[in-house]
């Protein structure tokens, strides 16, 4: 192919006069010819660029772009539903009845190592009222974890039931909540227990629900 012919084709090309077959010829020439005059080197890049572009394929992963989006949404929905369900199954029984045994356990535990929150609360709230009611009795000293203090507290509670009842009743729900929170703190791995030792907890739940 002589240089003049190619130059003619190039001129026609840039005037927009070339036919498709002439453009094919140009593309072929620039693809096959390695050694070119300097002024044509840029055109080689141009025509190879066009040829490269025409082989571009829609990426396979992108073909399923829509489906991917859809699956992502479905996955998100499922996971949120699962977490909500999980929350309900753990929270519902624990706030109502099921933690009672746990609260009892923590109270026993506290009596060994310290006072439960409710006991502390009762004592602090009770003190001024008690002094008003009966001043003859010696003032009680609150000693942290000695069993005798708890015994003393129990006996006082029975004797002063009339006075105590109103306070106790008003504080009862709060105490319960606090006990539950306390219990939950100690049993923060309860859900794991529930998961890995289902036989331990299921009978308890069933019993409580039947009542």
């Amino acid at each position: 192919m002589n240089k003049k012919h190619i130059q003619d084709l190039l001129d026609k090309y840039f005037e927009g006069d070339s036919s498709l077959s002439e453009e094919m010829e140009l593309k072929e020439f620039f693809r096959k010819t390695a050694i070119l005059p300097n002024e044509w080197k840029a055109y080689k890049n141009l025509f190879t660029y066009f040829e490269n572009e025409s082989t571009k394929k829609m990426p396979a992963s992108k073909q399923a772009h829509h489906q991917k989006k859809l699956w992502w949404i479905i996955g998100l929905g499922l996971s949120t539903a699962a977490t909500i369900l999980l929350l309900f199954t753990i929270q519902l029984p624990s706030t109502q009845k099921e933690l009672h045994p746990l609260a009892v356990i923590t109270k026993q535990h506290d009596s060994m190592y310290g006072k439960s929150v409710s006991q502390k609360k009762l004592e602090t709230k009770k003190q001024p009222k008690k002094e008003e009611a009966e001043k003859g009795k010696p003032t009680r000293t609150i000693v942290g974890d000695h069993p005798s203090t708890i015994l003393a507290y129990e006996s006082e509670k029975t004797s002063n039931r009339n006075i105590d009842n109103t306070i106790k009743n008003s504080l009862a729900p709060l105490d319960k909540m606090e006990d539950i929170n306390h219990a939950l703190q100690k049993f923060k791995y309860f859900d794991l227990m529930n998961k890995y030792l289902p036989n331990l907890t299921i009978p308890v739940i069933k019993e409580e629900r039947l009542k």
Binding site: E53, S54, K56, K57, M58, P59, K62, Q63, H65, H66
Partner: peptide
């Protein structure tokens, strides 16, 4: 896809 890519300059949008 190639025409859309030429106009949009984003392969995700072009594929869509």
């Amino acid at each position: 896809y190639r025409l859309a890519l030429r106009l949009l300059n984003s392969s995700d949008d072009a594929a869509d």
